[in-house]
Nucleic acid binder design. Structure first.
Lengths: 246, 246
DNA sequence: GCCGATTTGTCCGTATGTATC
DNA sequence: CGATACATACGGACAAATCGG
């Protein structure tokens, strides 16, 4: 059904809302699994799965023989959130900032050996090469270099790319973006970087390299997002060995 | 048992090794769950959990009605892996590199307003302030500034801190480190940074700010790890919606 | 378009192990 | 020691997606 999401997601949503609202005191235990089973009329696996999601969110932590402890802290969540894939546009809208994107270059190339090594595309793959500048509140802060598989989006145009690329791929082409491998590094600023982005004193860029896979397991996008270092910020919640549960 | 790890971890290790070795061709499907069940003589949930871990690692991708697709790319996987908390020492050992740690400063202070704003500790909290330098293969690459709640580890000494801090907290004090909230930024290098770390041309540091919580939900550690930008590398795998499995 | 086989996704109930108190 | 709680593992049932005939 459409309206009725999966049961574990329903339970997850309820518990999440309770934690956020302060219904469960911070630092204290949530009701035990057995209690939740009787409340939600479900199996133990289902409540455990819901709790596993809360653990991934950094909302609670579990300890064998003890219970599920509420560790929610309403810290500011800006820029990025990990664990989900979010486009620049989505991020900007969520944080209430004004973003624009313009295409500086749009070319077609074949992946040579060097590019293949860098990106992971096979040698000879036809690619779109796309340079975009992202402005935040009128200031250019991100220089985006993307390589996109032509065979996955034959009719891509600069006009489309200046809109949200992801919206086009998902809504127009029905492409499902499943996995994304991200790497964060710091690299010396290049002349190309300085051409558009005013770095001031800085001589480095924060670089987020993104490899996106579609549902066939084909990497269709390789993007280097080169951020102004003063703007860049990346957040996540890490968990020590949790291994949800099955 | 000590020798026999959990079954799903064994299966996970075997599958992971096969993917890394190329035994399963990239871009193709792994054996179906039923096949793996008969091979490993276990229940379906157990193989599914092992596969779920591979998904989190960005090794494979699953699709209902289709199968488990190998999307492993042997692009170097070094430094950090997201989703798990790993100490400098653990990371170095895993990547087969030689690491040493030395304590440059060890003091006791009370959190004033400025420090409270920066770290999140309440004003007036007694803290250990710890400066450590991490060498990798003989080169200093990380400058570590830690603030630690005294009441959580009253008997901390510089000698202990030069060993693995986490090992001490976990094994000696029985403290369970579960959740950690991390932020990555890029900051201008300070004189303090340059005192120990040879930055060459760079004038920035990659800064990982880490807030660790114990099992009571108390933040007991605030650490700024200031990395040499050329060494720094941070990886993670994001998944769009799938929510592994229980 | 339909149907059936295959495969993964969700959910259930149960049993046993292990850590905490 | 016992009671409680979470962790692991099993087996089964049905749903949903995919693909080929």
């Amino acid at each position: 059904m459409v309206l009725a999401a999966q049961k574990f997601l329903q339970i997850y949503s309820v518990l999440k809302a309770r934690v956020e609202s302060g219904e469960y005191p911070v630092g204290q235990l949530l009701p035990s699994e057995n209690t939740l089973i009787t409340e939600f009329h479900c199996s133990r696996n289902t409540v455990r799965r819901a709790i596993g999601e809360l653990v991934r969110d950094g909302y609670v932590q579990t300890r064998q023989g003890w219970g599920v402890c509420n560790i929610f802290h309403p810290i500011e969540q800006t820029s990025y959130t990990m664990g989900t894939i979010e486009s620049f546009r989505e991020t900007a809208r969520r944080t209430g900032q004004k973003s624009t994107t313009r295409v500086e270059s749009f070319t077609r190339i074949l992946a040579d050996q060097a590019l293949a090594n860098q990106t992971g595309f096979p040698v000879g793959t036809p690619l779109f090469c796309l340079w975009r500048i992202h402005d935040l509140n009128g200031r250019p802060i991100i220089f985006n270099i993307s390589y996109l598989r032509e065979d996955c989006m034959p009719h891509l145009t600069p006009e489309i790319a200046s809109e949200s690329l992801y919206r086009y791929l998902e809504e127009e082409l029905g492409m499902v973006i499943v996995t994304s491998k991200r790497t964060i590094t710091v690299e010396p600023a290049t002349d190309l970087d300085r051409r558009w982005i005013d770095l001031g004193q800085y001589n480095c860029m924060a670089v987020v390299t993104n490899q996106a896979y579609n549902s066939q397991g084909v990497m269709f996008e390789y993007t280097q997002s080169r951020h102004h270092p003063a703007i860049f910020r990346f957040q996540d919640n890490a968990v020590r060995r949790p291994v949800q549960d099955l």
